[in-house]
Design a protein around this nucleic acid. Sequence first.
DNA 1: CCACTGTGAAACGATATCGTATCGCAGCGC
DNA 2: GCGCTGCGATACGATATCGTTTCACAGTGG
Lengths: 202, 202
Amino acid sequence: MSSGSEAGGADPRVGRSRAVIRQAALDELAEAGYGAFTIESVAARAGAGKSTIYRHWRDKLDLIADAFESAHEHLVPAVADGTAADQIRQLVAHVAEVTADSTFSRCIPALIEGARHDRRLREFHHGYSARRRASLTSLISAGIATGEFAATIDPELAAQAILGAVFYGRLMAADPFDPARAGELVAAVLPPGGSAAARRPE
Amino acid sequence: MSSGSEAGGADPRVGRSRAVIRQAALDELAEAGYGAFTIESVAARAGAGKSTIYRHWRDKLDLIADAFESAHEHLVPAVADGTAADQIRQLVAHVAEVTADSTFSRCIPALIEGARHDRRLREFHHGYSARRRASLTSLISAGIATGEFAATIDPELAAQAILGAVFYGRLMAADPFDPARAGELVAAVLPPGGSAAARRPE
DNA sequence: CCACTGTGAAACGATATCGTATCGCAGCGC
DNA sequence: GCGCTGCGATACGATATCGTTTCACAGTGG
């Protein structure tokens, strides 16, 4: 918190209020969803006055968009070194964990619904997803380049299949994708290249 | 229209009204989304009176749930004979087409959002997805049994990856999954058994 | 210590949707 | 034809959220 992007910095109360309200907005979105999202609920949840919210954001959508844009910065995973397969497993496991249970992930249905109504939310949603996917795609490409994965793989398609499986669990099925199965998923979509890669007999 | 499940059948006006209103409800869901769904909008769209709607459904959720439950019956794809791979490609292409553009698919965000609030909607949503997935899973299993696909494949995981990729395009990305790429997707997630099956017979 | 400014609480009018009730009309079965 | 019943339209009170405004107070910097 106390992001440096807060203007001026003259009065610390401003930054504090904004941070608390943004977090309350995400909590409210996660719990109530997009349709039931109410400025008054956010104010109550944040222990703030409605007037404080309207002082800093024009309306509901402005607050939601800003809350998302501020939140995603805290969600960049740290990927250690290793083979492409290792890095990918790590990345997918991280996405699966976050998707399985976090305030941010519980906001995804609200984000999808909100994206239908507001251009700014839509751009954030698609842009954020694209960035996430791009990091996976480039890891896959790297693995193909080193011969770690089969050259027949389409990196973009594989990334969609992997991330799709994870999000499918959260959005379409009763049970979210189990992060422990990240390795299986990666192995299924990314078969090893011809040469040095190890095969796993059972 | 004129679904046979309408009780009695004494007065045809009843069945007609219900059908028109259900369709209008789906249109409204597809266009406005779950949060902005309004009984009055549905009435206007259906050219019906609000009182007619309240005469047949208790409230908003009751109407939405019923509309979905009635609609999904018309969406069962006809799968021709052929190899497992053929049938799967056909099924995936159908899902991709429906997902890319249809009233029903444009309701999916609303369905996801609604499932958060109503148990009946949630059960329909998860149940419908599970049935769709099960038909794909069993086709994959059949293909594995005949040696058409590699025995190392986990049918359930593969089905999640395939359907996930399709829905990911609609829900998380700017562009829906291109139905023309169904073949590529299936080939990527379901490598042929061929020699692999010979190596590990069952 | 003081002037200032952001804050929380509350009241307010406006709007929108809800769910109900009423009423004249037209489609339906007999 | 004729009575019945479902229909569309409209008005209604109740509720909830909006976004604004006012106000006393407390945290803040000088």
